[in-house]
Design a protein around this nucleic acid. Structure first.
Length: 216
DNA sequence: GGCCAGGACACCA
DNA sequence: TGGTGTCATGGC
């Protein structure tokens, strides 16, 4: 069992997941910040609240103070914190990329990652989500789902650092943004549908090779 | 009513 | 560098 063979099985079983919620690259960035430590439906409510007010764009958010953003994104939780983070990201986007997320695609992937990590409130996972899903760079995203699924499969211990887990995947997979994009999407779908299912995994394509099949 | 969710960060040793 | 508290809403 390798990351490659696991992906082949997922793809064969379900087809491409074709996934990241967000209509524009900018929405993807905002979504990546709003979903921090919350369930997606909560982030989505906040996203729609921004959209309803015509604020879900660089031009819409530019110039808004965190105090003005906060009440709009309340449903996403930790809204004061996230409002500051959104304001910081919008400021960064204006300074480095003329407010155009598309311009981030011109940057070298790891250089972009380092820049994003310098923005307060953007950590490794959020930086990689933005680099991969908004800018199309081949950086593998590690999240709680990734750890849960691959710990369960016995491929990682689960207590490795973010960068260690990312290296584990990137050393074993071709450097391909489309692959990384769909792989992460497959993991999210899998983790939601199967790995939290109790008392047994339900229709999991990896059930027969999962050492913990049937275990809650 | 408690626990958890697609994190990040400050603070501490 | 590793562990812990904090931020806070909504679903189950």
């Amino acid at each position: 069992m390798t990351p490659k063979s696991i992906y082949r099985r997922l793809l064969r079983a379900r087809g491409p997941a074709g996934w990241w919620p967000g209509e524009t690259p900018f929405e993807v960035c905002v979504g990546a910040i709003l979903v921090q430590n919350t369930a997606w439906p909560n982030a989505d409510r906040a996203l729609r609240a921004l959209k309803d007010r015509g604020r879900l764009s660089y031009e819409g958010l530019r110039g808004m103070a965190a105090e003005q953003i906060a009440p709009i994104i309340r449903p996403s939780g930790t809204f004061n914190v996230k409002a500051r983070r959104l304001a910081a990201f919008v400021d960064f986007l204006g300074r480095r990329y003329e407010g155009r997320v598309e311009h981030m695609a011109r940057e070298e992937p790891w250089a972009l990652r380092r820049q994003l990590l310098d923005v307060p409130g953007i950590g490794r996972e959020t930086a990689d989500c933005i680099a991969l899903y908004a800018a199309g760079h081949p950086l593998f995203v590690v999240d709680g789902y990734t750890r849960r699924v691959f710990t369960r499969l016995g491929l990682i211990r689960g207590d490795e650092s973010y960068d260690e887990v990312q290296r584990f995947f990137m050393r074993r997979l071709p450097e391909d943004a489309r692959l990384f994009n769909d792989y992460h999407a497959q993991i999210v779908v899998l983790a939601k549908q199967s790995c939290r299912a109790r008392p047994v995994c339900v229709e999991c394509p990896l059930d027969d090779v999962c050492p913990k099949r049937g275990v809650a």
